[in-house]
């Protein structure tokens, strides 16, 4: 009898703890956002109600704490919910995921050692297309995907 009651209690406990998964879920933005940081390095994308401070990203990429000023940040989200950020002069595309009130870096994809001249993202589900002049790259959340 005691065993039965214990088993029932355990079942109830596990049922309460199991997580609910909704699928499929798509997070892709149809269009990249092109935004300019304010004096504190904060960029705001009103359409998707997102605001983030990118000062540390520029510091990491350029080692100059003021390099974000006057820059244009290209920002897009892929179908799985990863955020891709880059800017003119960057060598890489940085990949982030949302994490409890922050964007935490999940990847960094090196594109060119010479720095990007005129980068732009396109949504090409399941990839993010990065174009720079005549060059174009399909990006997953951690690498350049070869054709």
């Amino acid at each position: 009898m005691k065993l039965r009651i214990s088993l029932m209690l355990l079942m109830i406990l596990f049922a309460g703890c199991s997580t609910l998964t909704l699928e499929p879920a798509k997070f892709d933005w149809p269009l990249e956002a092109v935004v300019t940081p304010d004096d504190d390095g904060i960029i705001v994308v009103e359409r998707y109600s997102i605001a983030v401070n990118i000062a540390d990203l520029f510091l990491k990429e350029t080692e100059n704490p003021n390099s974000f000023k006057g820059s244009e940040v290209r920002f897009i989200r892929n179908v799985d919910g990863y955020y891709f950020i880059t800017s003119k002069g960057f060598k890489s595309v940085y990949v982030f995921e949302a994490d409890n009130g922050t964007l935490s870096q999940s990847g960094k994809i090196l594109i060119t050692e010479n720095g990007l001249n005129n980068p732009a993202f396109n949504q090409r589900t399941p990839f993010i297309e990065l174009i720079d002049g005549n060059e174009s790259y399909n990006l997953s959340d951690n690498e350049i995907v070869k054709d």
Binding site: A120, I131, N134, E135, S136
Partner: peptide, 11 residues
């Protein structure tokens, strides 16, 4: 064609 295709949606 590839050059032409490499165009920014944003632009």
């Amino acid at each position: 064609s590839n050059v032409t295709n490499a165009q920014s949606d944003y632009e």
